[in-house]
Design a protein around this nucleic acid. Structure first.
Lengths: 341, 341
DNA sequence: TTGAAAGCGCTACCAA
DNA sequence: TTGGTAGCGCTTTCAA
């Protein structure tokens, strides 16, 4: 083992016959130092590969420049993109990110948040679990003067800034697009209406129909409970075999849309000429299906990056009364599954 | 803002008329302390919610209990599963993980590793970029007495423990399975032979053919360069339109297999009765195609967890001469695309 | 079984 | 413009 003795501030000071404070100031770009001294110190430091001891700095300054991030599942395309975006934004600002996952269970989320708090993170970015209604475990961060930003899945019981997707608008655009393409009988494979995102998507769908003079047909709205491919398949089957089959489907997620696509292909419907299809979330797979799947992109990278920026802003302002909710626009990606024309 | 004054060791000592050292020992379960004292201290600490200051402990002990992890891309199903597995294993052992990505560029990887080193991680888990041949930036960890474990994509130029998938065996199993199912003309959409994983998969394929008395047909091996869905599509088209079309395809990844599947369906071949198909990596999508895609699972979770365990073991033994390569078994997941019988 | 005290490396306050 | 120095909270050695 080959552990080099690391050079410290004091070593430099002694060697240069300066005080540690002067060396510290020179290295950290304080004003009111002579150019000479600064040069001298910097050169010496560079030459001897001085690296400040992060732990000492953290300890002294009582901050770590580490942000905590908790998501339900890393292994989920949307969340992995938000993580990726968050990492980049954090790196730019000199922060790094400690990751944890809740598996959509409150218990795990509480443990993870306590753990991160114990690790001394400066702030927390979290997309809460489905089970999270109360937020004492998150309040603990605020109580210690640490900022919290919620994103995507949020709880109103924590007074913190929030960052969400404009589901309503995304769903509206998707539905309007189908209408513009000439589809008139548009069904919606929706989600549970007690989940906010699902509700908003439904409302966007509904509004688009209304604005274009189409009536909402109750029997064309099928709520998926588990948001699975199987549900997409079977609900589509049910719809297409009904008295009044739709000519297009707007699905709450790409996975559901994939189920729909699988059924439609198995039953020899041609997409998009007979039936149009639009998903939501822009999973990676939507580029690779045949035909490719139109979808509503949620800009995961941007969302992660924005969450970091909001958090760091809090940290700097120590303005802990900000509870605004920021809505991020979505973007409809038109692909093969919905372009009749 | 509502920042509670945090209680420290000294506070407890003063209050209990003990010395800080005694309190520290009591809390950290040292022997040679009277039961009474231990009880007294623990109760007081619990009652007043004493939480040790992590930064001070890290500083004092000169370790952070944080591991660094660098992967080419978080937004990649396999890597996100390894991250997930690594997180769980680390949590169990009292470590947390700082994440960074290289985007498969050496330059980014060097930056990320320097960054993590600067953050004072205790060790590093890395899957190197395609561009990484030399490893000075990783050697820097070893030079500072910090352990490194490589996984999945590795470079031989760093003397560290390595953890890889048994690609040969996985490919062998996949090919043998196709043969057992009755396919006899098995093509291979391979990768670049200068990439080790690709080479091993090819060799496993080749060996399986030989062991079952089938001749390797040069024209049935198509090396994909970018490992894309498009390549899968076009090479499959070329193969099926050739004089001597195969009756099964073993593909280097699921994405390539998806391209193959898309072509086959578009040309009205029926899968699996006319053409059998097996992929590699068990992407999430392989469960949701129609038919579902047989694939070779790489146990990403286990791999991430194992990497953490290997790293922590190093940390504890400070045995830095371990350069063994551990091979993890794969598992063939037989699904709809390859079951003739 | 317990206490005293040094000191990890750095920053920032107060002086000069 | 620079120096001296206290001290962040904790662990650990040495001594009692």
């Amino acid at each position: 083992m080959n552990e080099k003795r690391k050079i410290t501030l004091k070593d430099i000071a002694k060697e240069l016959k300066l005080s540690p404070s002067t060396v510290s100031r020179a290295l950290n770009g304080y004003p009111s130092l002579s150019e000479e001294t600064i040069q001298l110190v910097k050169e010496y430091a560079a030459k001897h590969q001085y690296v400040p001891n992060t732990m000492a700095v953290n300890f002294r300054k009582n901050r770590t420049s580490i942000l905590g991030m908790i998501v339900p599942q890393i292994v989920h395309h949307f969340f992995s993109t938000t993580i990726s975006g968050a990492l980049e934004a954090a790196k730019k600002r000199g922060y790094s990110i400690l990751l944890a996952q809740s598996y959509d269970h409150l218990k795990e989320e509480v443990l993870a948040s306590q753990y991160l708090l114990g690790m001394g993170v400066d702030g927390l970015i979290i997309s809460v679990s489905n089970e999270t209604k109360e937020a004492e475990h998150l309040q603990a961060f605020l109580d210690e003067g640490k900022a919290v930003v919620q994103f995507d899945k949020i709880t109103e019981s924590l007074p913190s800034p929030k960052l969400v997707v404009d589901d309503f608008e995304g769903a509206y655009q998707a539905t309007a697009h189908l209408i513009r393409e000439g589809y008139r009988k548009i069904a919606h494979l929706s989600g549970r209406m007690d989940v906010k995102n699902a509700e908003q998507r439904f409302l966007g769908y509904k509004k688009a129909l209304e604005d274009h003079g189409l009536a909402l047909q109750e029997e064309w709205v099928k709520p998926c409970f588990d948001i699975t491919e199987e549900e997409g398949f079977s609900f589509t089957k049910a719809l297409m075999e009904s008295q009044n089959p739709p000519d297009a489907l707007f699905c709450i997620t790409d996975l559901v849309a994939l189920g729909a696509m699988n059924y439609l292909k198995s039953a020899n419907y041609s997409i998009p000429s007979q039936v149009g299809l639009v998903g939501f979330s822009n999973w990676m797979l939507s580029e690779f299906t045949s035909p490719t799947l139109s979808s509503v992109d949620q800009f995961g990278e941007e969302m992660g990056a924005k969450a970091v920026e909001m958090l760091i802003e809090q940290l700097q302002n120590t303005d802990f009364n900000n509870t605004e909710t920021v809505q991020l626009k979505t973007k409809l990606l038109v692909r093969g599954s919905s372009t009749k024309s």
